[in-house]
């Protein structure tokens, strides 16, 4: 299986996402090759303005991935995932759109010939890596006081129910538990973080962040594992406006890295805004 990695625009500056993904790729010998000259997926913004442009953006990326011989496109961002997935869904139901897209791509000598599957890196880690390899890498029994709340946000489980239950998924919890991580059950795992509305409407979105953090603390969680740069950013930076005890917001890859015994320096954990040493048992 050749994974074509689509990092997306937010990956590079996301708090230690790149560091931790790269550390896991090294430890588990995962070949994640960046799709050469990838472009932005357009996210919710471009689809809100003009579908034609949004479709050409996704079309270009799919054509590039196919051209370079990849079998699947792997994303690390919910917005990238759903945007590509949405474009593919539209193309499957209206094949004439592909002809339209190709008229544009032709000027760059690109052609969209087939629609590659799009998957999230979580799916790769949870389902593609043989148990043996995990066992080989995991050095010791992890001794940690982390009680992790899995947080999926909106755009991985919805609207296609790709991970089973769209409101109460458990793929991340099951995966983390297999690695010996303590996870907690809570009811905020697929609530909205505010997405890009956080920029103009920070005040309106503050209750959304607060609702998630309070629920996690009430259920005795002391750290949140995210799978999307926007979710991580909104929950991490959004706490600055709230008067509640700080709860660190990590990427799931950082938590996996710690569970494997990888040094926190190699996981970019110092880049979190609410620092990890703030883990405390202070309940609301």
């Amino acid at each position: 299986m050749r994974y074509g990695f689509f990092p997306g625009c937010a990956y590079k500056t996301a708090a230690g996402y790149r560091e931790s993904v790269e550390a896991l790729n090294r430890a588990l010998a995962i070949q994640l090759v960046e799709i050469p000259d990838w472009n932005c997926c357009g996210a919710t913004a471009v689809f809100s303005i003009n579908s034609s442009v949004a479709l050409v953006l996704s079309g270009r990326l799919l054509a590039l991935a196919d051209l370079h011989g990849f079998d699947e496109i792997i994303t690390v961002c919910n917005a990238c995932y759903t945007t590509l997935r949405k474009a593919i869904h539209m193309m499957e139901h209206h094949p004439e759109l592909i002809t339209e897209i190709n008229k544009h791509l032709k000027t760059e000598t690109l052609q969209l010939k087939r629609l590659l599957p799009v998957r999230h890196y979580l799916d790769v880690l949870a389902n593609d890596i043989p148990e043996m390899r995990w066992r080989k890498v995991k050095q010791s029994k992890s001794d940690s006081d982390l009680r992790v709340a899995a947080y999926y946000g909106c755009q991985l489980t919805r609207p296609w129910k790709d991970q089973g239950q769209p409101e109460r998924p458990d793929v991340l919890e099951q995966f983390l538990e297999r690695l010996g991580v303590t996870v907690i059950e809570h009811s905020a795992k697929t609530l909205c973080c505010g997405a890009s509305h956080m920029i103009p409407y920070a005040k309106d979105c503050a209750p959304l962040v607060s609702r998630i953090i309070r629920e996690v603390r009430k259920k005795n969680g002391n750290i949140i594992a995210t799978i999307c740069p926007m979710c991580q950013f909104n929950l991490d930076a959004g706490q600055g406006r709230l008067n509640i005890p700080g709860t660190p917001i990590a990427f799931f890859t950082q938590i996996v890295g710690l569970a494997l015994g990888i040094d926190s320096k190699d996981l970019g954990i110092d880049k979190l805004l609410v620092p990890m040493y703030k883990i405390s048992d202070n309940k609301e």
Binding site: A14, A15, S52, V53, L57, R60, D270, K271
Partner: peptide, 28 residues
Amino acid sequence: RRRLEIIPQSIKEPKRISYLKSADSERT
């Protein structure tokens, strides 16, 4: 925390995607 990207990001030759502008005027 070295988390601010100040250098503008782009694809290798942004000129190559000028067709996005014609898609812009089309609107499916």
